[in-house]
Each structure stands twice: as structure tokens, then as C-alpha cells.
Design a protein around this nucleic acid. Structure first.
Lengths: 229, 229
DNA sequence: ACCTGAACACCGTTCAAGT
DNA sequence: ACCTGAACACCGTTCAAGT
């Protein structure tokens, strides 16, 4: 028994970008993004790592491709509620996806995806903002803000959830905040528990509302760049 | 000439957490956080990597310690302007620090620092929000929102700035957005350039204003957790 | 063109053994 | 206790050589 995944595959299928990304998604699902390495994938595809570089530029690019593939699972058409509620649902779906794959959220911050699924997500958010009467110029900048916030939240919390390792750091932060010396950090001491408490869902909802309220109430500054001749 | 950094150090100094973090900061400044590895540090300290584990739990924990040390450079007492302007300056200082060390921003999302410098930053933000009349409960959640936004912005942009590698991804996104098919992605096509354009400073300022406006205008939801007896 | 073996230059972490 | 050598189990990427 030389290979692991030799089931109904008598002949080695030809390499292709599609096949590589597909294998990458499978490995990610089974073992996490940390295991999506050139060497692990080469093993899966029964070849050497060098061969993959014909189709993929780097590990980072590969991770971006995996993310875009996963983005196909985001629910872009929730039903019921007004534009605001639907937008919240779309972003919750996006966050949920990244929560399940925390390392993916971190990858999203580093190498932004540019595939169809990402474009569909952006388009959906823009359409909902339009429905809500958000001026175009604010929507253009707002979509970035909303997606960045969602991604960062997932990246942050995701770390906490998956790796036991990070729990210690988070506990350390919690302890540092709740145990602050009132003489040195009076505001932290005054707020205490509230700084880190609250059900995540409530926090997310409030954060989303802050963003929407802010976008609705904040005109964009006049452009500081020189006009095109 | 056996070692690299043998200058006025005749005897090998005893290992200590302080010394390790200090060396880590030095290596980060000189070669970037990517080079802050157990092995590289061991080499710097003239020992083996295993020895470091007496003082440091993991590489992630070490990176968090480096971040907290760097956080000491954030300007917490800008002069002039009202609370809002001063808060903007503090966050700009924080963002600037992370911009210069992009990988640090990513580390901040994964392993949150809990040292004195981080507490000082949180305290300062809370104090400025208090000055601005932001209710305590919103300030408690708002500080997280503001710092997360700043960190994510740095993590995102930082990748673009430092590594040529990521430029391609960003260009790909830009091209995908500006070249969108109006039949498939009408809103993206309509907004076009504006989605990715604008001086970063203007975008940052607008994002900050959105957050402040949002926090000022969004009450926290009534707690959904049961009251303490 | 596409594919590969082999090499270069690294990693984190553990553990038995020493002092 | 503190420190370490050595090992285990990996990495990304390049490049000359093959088909």
C-alpha cells in the first residue's frame, strides 16, 4: 500500500490548476489550512512539489484560491427582512464560514481573493447598500469596511476557538483587563468585565449596527487629489 | 570568528525572558518578524532552540511579546485638537507602527498582546471616548472595534506594501473589480474605480469617522444574558 | 511545454541526558 | 532548576535535467 488515496483512481490524472485547487480544498476540509502545503499537496497528487509551480505561483496564491472556492458557500440570497437585515445575514454567513476555518480568515487579510465568488459577495453587498439608499460613493468605500470588519472578527476570534494554544493568550488578556490597577488604568478598571464580556452574537450585531449607522451618517470627504485634466 | 554578534560581550550572558524578547525585537527590526524564529534567536543568543522553551511557550507567544514591546512607541499623548482629533492621532500612530511592520499586525490578530503597553493604549482610547461623552457600555465595546479596525487595516495594507508577492494579488483584485462585466456585476461596474481608489489617508479618515459616528449613534442592545442573582 | 529529482536553506517542538 | 544535543517531522522554492 504505497499511497493513501488510491481508491478508484487507477491512472494518475494529469495535473491542472483546477485539480490542484480541488485537492487543496479537500485537504483544508480534512486537516485545516495549515496542512495545505506544496509538499502535502504534491503527495496527494502523487507528484513532487516542484511540479505544482507550473500552475500555482506560491503558497499564498494557493491559499487565496482555496478561500475563493470556499466563498461559494456564502448565502447571498437570504429571505425576509429589510435590506439591513438581509445584509446582516449575508455578512453573518460570511463570518460563519471564516469562523469554521479561522486560518482562512487570516489568509483573506494577506492575499485578497479576486475570483468570481468574491466578486459575487461584493456585488451583493453593494446591491443591498443601494437598496438602503446609501450613496454610491459611501457604498464604494463601505463595502470594504464591512468585509474587512467581518474578516478581522473571524481572524481574531477564530484563533481563539480552534487552537488551544491561543486560549492562553486570550485568558492572559482577559486577566490583564479585569485585574487592572485602578490607580494606573482607571478607565479599564471602571469598565472591568464589560470590556471582554457579552455574547459574541450581541457584539457582532452591535458592531454591524455601528458600521451601518456610521456609513449612513458620514459623508465622504471632498477628494484631495487633483482633478483629472 | 565563530559568532556574528561577538562585540563587547566576552561571556555569554545568562538566558532570560527579557533577553530573549530583546533579541527578538532586534531581529525583527533588522530582518522582519518572519525571521523571529526559535532557531534564529537561539543562534543570536548562542544557544540551542530547545533552551528558549524554558522562558517562552511558543513562537506565537514570542511574537505577541515583540508586539507589546513595540507598542511602547505609540504616541498616547498627542497635543491639540479635541478628543476626536486626539483619538484619531493615537490610532494613526498605532496604525503607522503596524504599517512599518506588517507581519506584526497579523500577529496582533492571532495572539492578542496583554502587556503594559497594550493596556496603556486601551486605557488611552477609553479615556478619550469618556471625554467625548461616549457612554461607558459603548466605550467598552467600541475600543475593541476601533483597535480591531486599525489592526486589520494595517494587516491588509501591510501585506501589499512589503511583499512584492502580494502586489500581484492586489492587482488581480483591482483588475477584477474595474473590469467587471456590467451584465453580471452591475453595481461593481457602476462604481468601478471608486471601489479601490482614493488616497489611503482619506479612506482611513473616513473609516475612523464612520466608527465614531456609529458608536455615538448606536445604543447597545439590552443584555440577553440572565441577570446575576 | 511540462514535469521531476534532488538539493538548498530553512522551520517548531520534544525529550532524554547532562550539569 | 536550567540547559542542551540530537532527533523527529516537517516547510518553500529553485534549478538542472529529463521527456
Amino acid at each position: 500500500m504505497p499511497g493513501i488515496s488510491r481508491r478508484e483512481r487507477p491512472a494518475k490524472p494529469a495535473l491542472s490548476r483546477e485539480g490542484i485547487v480541488g485537492a487543496a480544498v479537500a485537504v483544508m476540509r480534512a486537516e485545516g489550512l495549515d496542512r495545505v502545503t506544496m509538499r502535502r499537496l504534491a503527495q496527494e497528487l502523487d507528484t513532487g512539489p516542484a511540479s505544482l509551480y507550473v500552475y500555482v505561483r506560491s503558497t499564498a496564491e494557493l491559499h487565496a484560491a482555496v478561500l475563493d472556492a470556499l466563498l461559494g458557500e456564502v448565502d447571498l440570497t437570504p429571505t425576509g427582512g429589510d435590506w439591513r437585515e438581509r445584509l446582516r445575514r449575508v455578512l453573518d454567513s460570511y463570518i460563519g464560514l471564516l469562523f469554521d476555518n479561522p486560518s482562512l480568515a487570516r489568509a483573506a487579510l494577506v492575499a485578497r481573493p479576486s475570483g468570481t465568488n468574491y466578486l459575487n459577495l461584493v456585488e451583493t453587498v453593494l446591491a443591498l447598500l443601494k437598496t438602503g439608499g446609501v450613496p454610491d460613493d459611501r457604498a464604494a468605500w463601505g463595502v470594504d469596511l464591512l468585509l474587512l470588519q467581518a474578516t478581522a472578527t473571524a481572524a481574531e476570534h477564530g484563533a481563539q476557538a480552534r487552537q488551544l494554544d491561543r486560549d492562553d493568550d486570550w485568558d492572559a488578556l482577559r486577566a490583564a483587563l479585569t485585574g487592572a490597577d485602578p490607580a494606573v488604568h482607571p478607565r479599564i478598571a471602571a469598565l472591568g468585565d464589560d470590556l471582554v464580556s457579552g455574547p459574541p452574537r450581541d457584539r457582532h450585531r452591535w458592531q454591524f449596527d455601528v458600521l451601518i449607522t456610521g456609513v449612513l451618517g458620514t459623508p465622504r470627504p471632498p477628494s484631495t487629489t487633483r482633478e483629472p485634466s
